[in-house]
Design a protein around this nucleic acid. Structure first.
Lengths: 127, 127
DNA sequence: CATATGAATCGAGAAAATACGATATGATGG
DNA sequence: CCATCATATCGTATTTTCTCGATTCATATG
């Protein structure tokens, strides 16, 4: 037998047993469509943060601005790997960079980034 | 030729050109080792948040507590998919659940979760 | 206790993210 | 200009995550 699991109908009939006026509740639920843009933006930020190496980069930048070659030492990873991580962080708006001669210096873009890191830490503490 | 890119030595010699006392700077950088546990916890939280479906679940829970079958309607996804997302959110400490009869009701675990969502939104706004 | 129902778990194929060598780019100093 | 060096980008092999049907589990009800 197939598709025992995917029927949306299944969920509808469940709601019809739960509520006196299921139609209204179903309409309400279907209307929960947060702006695609909002969700996409949040997703970009959280995906960028959801990686050990990138969290360690942010941890280093919390101390001070660093150039790319310094971050290679922090991560003990090859240059192209570090550069890729930095690009992701930059695209997400978490870090900014400035160029000085041959060097690119990276810094945390905003104090909101510190807050994000601290909140995540706090949440996991009491799991 | 091979491994033109991965030599850690390369980064070391770069720093030796950058600083008068490179040894000290290198030692400082290598010491930036945030507690593995801290980073792992943050990573779990941010990985859980870095997914469109899960962000939409949180968006729905922001309105009100929901049971599993209601979230199936919100996402328009099969039951096992929704259940898997909910497990991830729970493991990360982002939602809590209570069982009532056959139903499992989910709710956001802490106001810190709202703050995370809002901060991420704010950061992406000015990228 | 048989059946129905909502939810949790499992497993395997599909999709996405990551790692990293090779190469390209752009600045600097002879 | 040519060589060197710090970065950035590209291509692809590898790893991780996601999806979702099937199955199992738990609760309720006749």
């Amino acid at each position: 037998m197939s598709k025992t699991d995917s029927l949306p109908d299944e969920a509808y009939s469940a709601l019809e047993r739960l509520y006196d006026d299921p139609e209204e509740r179903i309409a309400t639920l279907q209307d929960i469509r947060p702006s695609e843009q909002d969700v996409a933006g949040q997703e970009t930020v959280f995906k960028a943060l959801g990686n050990e190496d990138r969290l360690r980069i942010l941890s280093a930048l919390r101390e001070s601005e660093c150039c790319g070659c310094e971050l290679q030492i922090v991560l003990d990873a090859p240059q192209s790997t570090v550069a890729t991580h930095l690009r992701k962080l930059k695209e997400a708006g978490l870090v900014k960079s400035r160029k000085k001669g041959k060097w690119s210096y990276y810094r945390i873009a905003d104090t909101a980034v510190f807050e994000l890191l601290d909140l995540a830490h706090a949440i996991q503490e009491d799991v």
